[in-house]
Write a protein that binds this DNA or RNA. Structure first.
Lengths: 141, 141
DNA sequence: AACATTTAGTTAGCAGGCTAAGCATTATTG
DNA sequence: CAATAATGCTTAGCCTGCTAACTAAATGTT
């Protein structure tokens, strides 16, 4: 009995995350971005000149992933890389004007997507839901 | 105010799903499987000789993805493909003994993973949580 | 019967994501 | 000071996942 419920929860989470990714990703294509790249840019909008290791931590992914994402974003003219003067191992990542210009349109898309996800869930319920999610999040560590 | 909560929910979902994928995927590597392949096999454990289109529907993904997954699983000896006698366009997918043998170990890993995710959440709370997730799921369609 | 359309899968090429291995460069330590 | 270790990043190769364009087979239509 409880098994059926548990099972649904895990599968439901899977379905939600993949559908979220699909929908949001599709929406981002209108800005010439791929899903995930917005999160890298988000870190840069908070502050430029960050190292790739710092991007790793923010994105919670491995260095090769960041290498690839940075390469793609650079080729599309959203960011540029500059070797650090002090430490020649370090690559610092900066926004181009094109990259800066995306902040507002991405935020709009993000809000739209969020609204769609949470429609018809009251503010109180959202708080309850948030608790559950935080619980699961810490369970996974 | 509400924005902060909403934002946390979306990000929380993202973090949970990627962490789930990482943890469960890592666990599946012990069985020589990649995350997602278990779901394809799961469909076959319910019944063999399914077409790739049916696998698409079950996995909720596009045909090329199934082509790749099937190729990989075939190369690793978990499944085999057989052209349909009636309709030569159709490829029917069958489990090998090696593929059949994975059912129990995968189920064990799945349960372990599920238990970890939902630990310290009561049965009643799980039901409430499930409602929220189903609401979000239908919101995305 | 001949042509057009739909269906099932494949291929190529791209994205995010991973591991393993390698390469500089910097820091540590004998 | 020289050998070693740690750090930051890249490359190669694999995974799921996508779209666009293709092939081959079955079905519809004229």
């Amino acid at each position: 009995m409880t098994d059926a419920v548990d099972c649904d929860i895990r599968q439901s989470l899977d379905r939600i995350s993949s559908q979220m990714r699909r929908n949001y990703g599709e929406s981002l294509r209108e800005l010439n971005l791929y899903v995930g790249q917005d999160n890298l840019l988000y870190r840069l909008w908070l502050g430029d000149g960050v190292t790739q290791m710092q991007l790793c931590e923010h994105l919670k992914c491995e260095p090769p992933t960041v290498t690839n994402m940075v390469k793609s974003l650079e080729q599309n003219g959203f960011i540029y890389r500059k070797r650090d003067g002090q430490d020649a191992r370090i690559m610092r990542i900066f926004l181009t004007d094109k990259g800066k210009a995306l902040e507002t349109p991405v935020e709009i898309k993000w809000r739209q997507h969020q609204e769609k996800l949470l429609q018809s869930i009251s503010t109180e319920d959202r708080l309850v839901l948030k608790q559950f999610l935080q619980q699961m999040e810490s369970n996974l560590l």
